[in-house]
Amino acid sequence: MEPFKISIPEQQLHDLSIRLKQVRWPSSFSIEPWALGTDYSFLKGLVDYWGSEYNWREQEAWLNRFPQFIEHVDGFDIHFVHVRGEGTSERPLLLTHGWPGSLVEMLELIPYLTTHRYMVDILKRHLTLLFPLCQALHFRVNLHDREWGPNT
């Protein structure tokens, strides 16, 4: 296992900000919102937020509070969070996410599943958690070189 920290280069964040500010929007639509997909005004507000208000560095610091690793398995780098439970009576638990979800949705579960304060009355033991990230969504995968699918 190789320790891993999220660290997006500043140039990439700057480039993203520029691209978000330069979106060429179509004319607004005169149809009911969400009738043909994402609502135009909702999407425009989301892009504006990401381009001017969203603080990636704050989110990056929050995510890096959790112990992350990379493990090389069958030619792929698997990015995962690994949190050990408190105490000596641990049991492993693998938590996965699907598309379009993400690991972030489950991070708030960590104290409930790993600390004495919460677990002693429920399971009488603490859990060691593994959160692998979906392939193609983490920071070091290149799926273009190999076939990837449900049987991989």
Rank of each mutant, 00 (worst) to 15 (best):
S7I: 01
S7Q: 08
P9Y: 09
E10S: 10
L13P: 01
L13N: 01
H14V: 15
H14G: 02
H14A: 14
D15M: 06
I18V: 14
L20G: 04
K21D: 03
V23M: 12
R24S: 14
R24G: 10
P26T: 09
P26L: 09
S28E: 15
F29S: 01
F29H: 00
F29W: 01
I31K: 02
E32R: 12
P33F: 01
P33E: 02
P33I: 06
A35F: 00
L36T: 06
G37A: 02
T38I: 13
T38G: 05
D39F: 06
D39H: 06
D39P: 04
L43V: 12
K44Q: 15
V47N: 02
D48L: 14
Y49N: 10
W50S: 05
E53Q: 11
E53H: 10
Y54N: 02
Y54Q: 03
N55F: 05
E58T: 13
E58F: 14
E58D: 13
E60D: 03
E60P: 02
A61G: 04
W62A: 12
W62Q: 10
W62P: 00
L63S: 04
L63I: 08
L63P: 02
L63K: 11
L63N: 05
N64H: 09
R65Y: 00
F69S: 04
I70N: 05
I70W: 04
V73N: 02
D74F: 06
G75D: 06
G75C: 08
F76Q: 11
H79L: 15
H79P: 05
F80A: 02
V81T: 10
V83F: 02
R84G: 01
G85W: 09
E86P: 03
G87C: 09
S89R: 15
S89E: 13
E90R: 15
E90I: 14
R91L: 13
R91E: 10
R91N: 07
P92F: 06
L93K: 07
L93T: 08
L94Y: 14
L95M: 09
L95V: 13
L95S: 00
L95P: 00
H97Y: 10
G98H: 08
G101F: 14
G101M: 11
L103I: 15
L103E: 05
E105T: 14
E105H: 15
M106N: 09
E108C: 05
I110C: 03
I110T: 06
Y112S: 03
L113C: 04
T115L: 04
T115S: 05
T115R: 08
Y118M: 09
M119C: 14
V120W: 08
D121T: 15
D121W: 14
L123G: 07
K124D: 11
K124I: 08
H126W: 00
L129K: 05
L130F: 15
C134A: 13
Q135M: 11
L137E: 04
F139M: 10
R140P: 00
R140A: 03
R140H: 09
V141I: 13
H144S: 05
R146F: 11
E147A: 07
E147S: 06
